[in-house]
Amino acid sequence: MDAQTLYDGILAGNRRAVARGLTWIDEGGVRGKDLAHRLFAHAGKARVIGITGAPGVGKSTLVNALAINLRRRQNTVGILAVDPSSPFSGGAILGDRIRMQESVDDQGVYMRSLASRGHVGGLSRAAFGAITLLDAAGFGTILVETVGAGQAEVEIMRYAQTVMVVLAPGLGDDIQAIKAGILEIGNVFIVNKSDREGADMTVRSLRGLLSLTPESGEWSPPIIKTEADRSVGIDRVVDSIEQHQSYLRQHNLLNDLRYRQAENVLEQSLDDVRKEVEMLSRRESLWKDTVEEILRGKDPSLYARKLFANWLNATPRGE
């Protein structure tokens, strides 16, 4: 598939084009980046919901239940689920689909497994491009499931409008473990597996900790008990997503997020420019000569500018 066919197919919502486009974006090369940057102008319509929490709390099962509920409410649903890559081989076993079988049997749901590929932060490097693609393809709601997250995996808040933090009772001192990090990014808190002993205790300590975090505007995050495998409490979760979304709209916060995302696209492009400058310079003797000059005590930032100027001359790009 060539880039234009792919682009047109994605905008038309063609599933094969969506799948192949995600492969391009996931591989992290130039063609994927170009695609994601072109699609950005068509994105910004979807509701992007993040689902994060420690391993084993039931994130995938919850996503499955949410997708079914959202379908009942006439939403089309795109799902991105990130699992960790092996730090040794770079490979991964992606098993989130096992628990999402019921929802992915529906043609109104598209689900894709992503490997983190060494990226820290709970997502994959391609996550934002992948969200942009599903958004541009017309999915009304996009559910993004992070890797099993602890304290530092807060990247989801950069891309999702509504972040749900999932906990489960009986996982030891779980609240203690997350209080510093992801507790502060949650817009909705879910205590899943709430038929288990200790659920009320988890809700109480969560409420206690939330009362200590600084107030962020007028939204106070609800705490909802669920049993995702039996769809108990799911209606309330989807209601609270909708309430949070209308809160964001009323306070004009969706525009802020979109602005930050555009900033993010710009940052990524700048990073790419830097890499291209280096690659081009390394291909030429310019790189070696420059290193020699710096060894002789010349100003490195002056020579960085020279490398940039050389790149600028070598790559005339259409306006």
Binding site: R15, S86, F88, G91, A92, I93, L94, R97, I98, Q101
Partner: peptide, 25 residues
Amino acid sequence: RDAGMEVIYTGLHQTPDQIVEAALS
């Protein structure tokens, strides 16, 4: 996985339609 590949496992009792849908998606 240990050879560096990304492996999607969908569990037991899959129908041919489910398998092909997963392969394409």
